[in-house]
Design a protein around this nucleic acid. Structure first.
Lengths: 334, 334
DNA sequence: CTGAAAGCGCTTACAG
DNA sequence: CTGAAAGCGCTTACAG
């Protein structure tokens, strides 16, 4: 029932080869025949079957994307950046998550072996870096969207975690804050180390080295941000700023401070990291280090698609800059 | 280089037909040969090419999903529900958005014609319902995840908008609130009408009909929620509760109330709708009507996949219940 | 129980 | 400039 290249050929009175040629613009062909074929294609509303084309050409025109989960607030931004580029180039995006652990990964591996896509974009599900590296070495084009500071041996897109941390520090120093507290993320993440190093170095250089007890190990959750700061307050520690390494834990910190009756930013200024939508809607609105999530998705997709067209994949990571977004959590309202 | 069914056949000393049969478990076959073939498959790590299988069978084992955008806070939940089911059944999920308007839709239409997927799950991008209806009538299996209260003529999954609105009303009535204000979403949405009707009816029945000037037309944004309530306060209107029809505008309402120095919930209680993560992190934490987003994605995917296995698609919408989640915006803290 | 052959809908040397 | 034929990697009647 659906119309095929054979139908078009018959209607136009030419061979399938010729139809294929006008479709793909390959080889010389008589302008008149080409026009006639195009005419028939339009009349019949013919569109080549993606599957058949893929089989014949050995390429699917599909890019795969593997993400840990879809329910994190910032994943959508990255995904949107990816989808926009992929769609604009006429590719499809096949999405995989690791939500069901081992089982998910096994399914995903099957799809890789089944050649369901031509290349892979990945935000690394925890503990799968070795596996991804293998895929790359086995010849699958892979671009990592590196939110963890992995610095892998294959192409990747990352952001300036270190200078992002530094910018938070400089901002707080300019506001005269001398005794900051840092709430980190999981310590195994490279980005956590980088953000901390950038922040700590800046304070050290300014002559106010960060005391170890002012670095609180967190896990990027709201609850942990709240309890870490809550406990610190209860212990009677004195501090005038909090740098939480993601917005969720920064929001938790805001709550702990409000619960303690402290004024933000007068008593304690707070800076987050990421700039997810939540940051703008918290109380008070959160100053944060903006991560160019959408641009990272965008850049990764472009890199992969360019590779399909012959541009070699870059060996060094493409690093996109963060920038500080100042809101009420560090700027007293007039 | 990649290994094919022919390689397996050769190594096992059988025909491709036989290999295909053990792969698909079709037809009677000698237990010994089957075992030998399986052995070879395992040794070679053979996985059938998805594209070739799709072409031969006329089915892709891929479900398409069309969404308006990926950056809305609740889309990720629905998507995760969908992906979990789709992956568990060994299908792939091909994702499309309408972020680039007409152009996106044209690209999408191409993929439909190219038979890139067997069936479609859709959260309707505004103004595309007619197009989707056409696709369904043209024979494409479609299930709508109906967040707008469309009640389409094809299979869909929806939620109890009306009784969700009613539950918000009953809760506020129980708290003794007699003069509520409603901040709606875009009035063209069926869900907006339903939520309002459920809410208004409950108040009318309780003997406190909603005055028209207490129904504020909104657009589901934070800023609109804030300004609508802000203006109402400035006008000197008196009210003791706000029912905002999504969490984002409810957060905006919270901000307007805080800015006016009102206590929440003592002076004004606030109820939202959706129960996105933001709701739990707002100040104060927001009481809201939980929408079973993940379950909706889950149910839609199951419906579509069941159809592939022969179960007819239901004609009536599958309606999943909302439930009220009570937090501090209506419950005074002790 | 098993295989040879045709077919799915394209593309791509190879001839002419 | 154009077409017949082989091939991409599978599945599925049809024979035996």
């Amino acid at each position: 029932m659906p119309i095929t290249i054979a139908d078009v050929a018959k209607h136009a009175g030419v061979s399938k080869t010729t139809v294929s040629r006008v479709l793909n613009g390959k080889g010389e062909l008589n302008a008149a025949t080409a026009a006639r074929v195009r005419q028939v294609i339009a009349e019949l509303g013919y569109v080549p079957s993606a599957g058949a084309v893929g089989l014949a050409r050995g390429r699917t025109q599909i890019v795969g994307m593997l993400v840990p989960s879809l329910t994190w607030p910032w994943i959508g931004q990255v995904l949107q950046g990816v989808v926009d580029v992929v769609e604009a180039e006429g590719f499809g995006l096949l999405l995989f998550t690791c939500n069901r652990g081992e089982e998910s990964l096994r399914r995903f591996a099957q799809q890789v072996s089944a050649k369901s896509f031509d290349g892979l974009l990945v935000i690394e599900p925890e503990g799968t870096l070795d596996y991804i590296t293998e895929l790359h070495q086995a010849g699958l084009p892979v671009v990592l969207i590196d939110d963890r500071g992995h610095q892998p041996i294959f192409p990747s897109v990352a952001t300036t975690d270190r200078s992002g941390g530094a910018s938070a520090a400089r901002h707080l120093l300019e506001l005269g804050r001398r005794r900051p507290v840092v709430v980190t993320g999981p310590e195994s993440f490279g980005c956590v180390q980088d953000r901390l190093a950038g922040f700590a170095d800046e304070y050290a250089e300014a002559g106010h080295p960060l005391p170890p007890e002012h670095v609180l190990l967190g896990d990027f959750t709201f609850e942990q941000g709240r309890s870490a700061v809550g406990r610190l307050l209860a212990s009677g520690a004195s501090f005038d700023a909090v740098f939480a390494q993601n917005d969720l834990s920064a929001s938790g910190a805001l709550l702990a401070l409000r619960e303690a009756g402290l004024r933000i930013p007068e008593d304690v200024a707070v800076v987050g990291f990421d700039d997810v939508p939540l940051a703008a809607y918290s109380e008070p609105a959160l100053t944060t280090v903006h991560q160019p999530l959408r641009e990272m998705g965008d850049a990764a997709a472009r890199m992969l698609l360019a590779h399909f067209k012959g541009t070699p994949l870059p060996t060094a990571a493409e690093v996109l800059p963060t920038h500080l977004v100042v809101r009420d959590s560090t700027r007293s309202r007039t």
